[in-house]
Every structure is written in C-alpha cells, then in structure tokens.
C-alpha cells in the first residue's frame, strides 16, 4: 500500500482504532458490572427474580449478537428507544456480555468453600461485608481466567458493531477499501491487527492470572 494512502486515511483509521478500544473497554466494564449484579441478584434475590434472570440469560445466550443489535438499533425506535449508533452499540455489548459474565461469577461463587461463608456468619460479620470481603475476593480469583477469556472474546465482537455503522476500526477500514479499491490488503492488515491485539491481551491476561494466583502456586 502506498504511503500517501496511509497519510490520507491514517487519522481516520486511528480514530476508528480509538473507538474500537473504547467500545471494548467500556463494553467489558459495563457488562461485567451488570453480570455481577445479575449473579448477586440470583444468589440473594427472591425466587421469581431468579427465574426471570435465568430466562434473560438463556434468551441472550441463545440469540446472535447481530440480531440483538438489529432489535435494539432498528427496532428500538418503534418503542421510543431512539439511540445513535455508538450508544446503541455500547448498550448492545453490555446486554450481550452480561449473561456470560453472570455465569462466570456464578461459578466463581460456587467455588468459594461454604465453610468460609459459614465461619464469617458464625463470627457475626454482616451479610454485605461477607459479600464484599470474603465472597467476592475469593470468587474473583477463581473466576479470573474465565473473565479474561471472555473479555478477549468481546474484543472480537466489537467488529460486529460496524454493521450498525458504529465508526470503529472495521467500519473505517471498509470505508477506506471502498474508496481505494484495496479490499484484500485492507482486510489482511485488519486481520493481522486483531491477531496481534488478541495475542497481546491474552499474554497480559496470563501474566495477571499468574500474579493473582501466586499464593496458590506456593501454598
């Protein structure tokens, strides 16, 4: 690819990259937070709420992300939910990721030895403190590999946002390739870029895991 092409499209691609990273980070944080709330509500909430959340998890996990985005972005205005592409994409990512994170947290809670919770109750620690100081820290350590793994999956899902015209990297790359007719090169570079991104994040994730679980290794 000629240098002038990069000079011309460089800023556009850079902006796209920024939006990709923003969507990924914000989407991961928001869906993780929502997932945690769902998992906690399932554990401590009333039974009807549990069933409702179970249904939510099954529905979201059973339908493609693309269709969820279409419902939200094109169907939303019919019920008064009129969003721009970027907020719709972020909301979509949050909704899409939350059930997976909820399941990860749920299995993390399951891995916490029950005796620890009972012991905390026995010495009279109030329930909110048990959650904050005993349940969550222990669950987070055992859930970390799965959390990292799903965050990596979310980086790849961000490209689907390009279909509802969120101006992220894939969208900008497609725009560039239709204007320069360099479809193959553009997509090849995009593939290499994502490959590098995912490899980097998973390396960092593994290092984080090793750091957080080192007391277990030694123990």
């Amino acid at each position: 690819m000629e240098l002038s092409v990069l000079q011309q499209y460089g800023p556009m691609l850079l902006r796209g990259f920024g939006i990709t990273v923003f969507c990924w980070l914000a989407g991961t944080v928001l869906s993780m937070a929502l997932g945690l709330m769902i998992a906690l509500a399932q554990r401590y909430g009333p039974r009807w709420l549990n069933w409702l959340l179970r249904a939510y998890i099954e529905v979201i996990r059973g339908t493609p992300f693309l269709v969820q985005l279409f419902v939200l972005y094109y169907g939303g205005p019919l019920v008064g939910l009129r969003l721009d592409a970027l907020p719709a994409g972020l909301l979509g990512l949050t909704v899409y990721g939350s059930p997976y994170f909820a399941e990860i947290f749920r299995s993390g809670f399951g891995a916490v030895p029950h005796g620890q919770i009972e012991a905390a109750r026995a010495v009279g620690i109030p329930e909110p403190s048990i959650v904050r100081r005993i349940l969550l820290p222990l669950a987070l350590v055992s859930a970390l590999p799965a959390l990292v793994n799903f965050s990596i999956i979310l980086t790849k899902e961000t490209v689907i946002l390009s279909i509802i015209t969120v101006p992220e990297l894939m969208y900008q790359t497609q725009r560039m390739s239709t204007e320069t007719f360099r479809y193959l090169e553009a997509n090849f570079v995009l593939a290499l870029f994502f490959w590098g991104l995912v490899e980097t994040i998973s390396r960092l994730g593994r290092r984080l895991e090793a750091r957080v679980t080192r007391h277990i290794e030694r123990g």
Binding site: R61, P64, G75
Partner: peptide, 30 residues
C-alpha cells in the same frame, strides 16, 4: 438474519421481524 433484514425493509416493522428472528434462533439453540 439476511431474510429478516429483507422482511424488515419491506414491512417497515423491524422490531417485530427481528424479534421473530431472535425467537427462531432461540428455538434452534434451546
């Protein structure tokens, strides 16, 4: 998905059509 896009375009009812598509995906996956 492509068929529901076409259907949504001809009926001007994206919400209903995409929800129907979601139901079919859900049925298959369940």
């Amino acid at each position: 998905t492509r068929a529901s896009q076409a259907q949504a375009a001809t009926t001007f009812r994206p919400l209903e059509v995409y929800l129907a598509a979601a139901c079919i995906y859900l049925a298959i996956n369940l």
